[in-house]
């Protein structure tokens, strides 16, 4: 009986030790209960090839608008479902009315960090007024 108590103590200490050394820092938030602004949420199509990344950076929603100058503006809301900070990169491709890719000098994979439980809004503005469609790509941090 005493032996069993000792082993359970060791197990408890081990779990406490792991919990102490693993960085579980999450984000608490507060916001208006009934938001004044209304989002124009659009239907999206998701292709998930990395389910591990999808748990770390899960897509909550997608909404779009138009700037004063007539540029398409999008916002992707992502949530880190893990309890620790995650690093990822994203890239946005823009397409014209014919579905052709619009090349821009500033289209790069942008690295971001998201804390545990944090919701992050990724915003982007189309490079030209001819851009009508878009594709947002996500990848785990692979930089050296």
């Amino acid at each position: 009986m005493k032996k069993k108590t000792n082993s359970s103590r060791v197990l408890t200490c081990l779990i406490a030790g792991i919990a102490l050394f693993s960085s579980c820092t999450t984000v608490n938030t507060v916001e208006r209960a009934t938001p004044v602004g209304t989002r124009h949420i659009i239907a999206d199509k998701r292709i998930i090839t990395d389910s591990g990344l999808h748990r770390k950076v899960s897509i909550v929603g997608l909404n779009e608008g138009t700037t004063h100058g007539g540029f398409l503006q999008i916002q992707v809301e992502v949530l880190n479902q893990k309890n620790s900070m995650q690093a990822f990169s994203y890239s946005i491709e823009w397409f014209d009315l014919n579905g052709m890719l619009i090349h821009t000098p500033t289209s790069v994979w942008i690295p971001r960090q998201i804390e545990g439980g944090e919701t992050l809004a990724i915003t982007a503005v189309a490079p030209t007024t001819t851009a009508k469609d878009f594709r947002v790509k996500f990848i785990e941090d692979v930089r050296k």
């Binding site: 004063h68 100058g69 503006q73 500033t106 790069v108 942008i110 915003t123 503005v125």
Partner: peptide, 22 residues
């Protein structure tokens, strides 16, 4: 090189959104 790209990307988006050039 990527730092310049990140900065340029943010600057251009901010400028186009602001409508200052319109």
């Amino acid at each position: 090189i990527q730092d310049f790209s990140y900065a340029a990307e943010d600057m251009v988006q901010s400028l186009l959104t602001s409508g200052a050039i319109d």
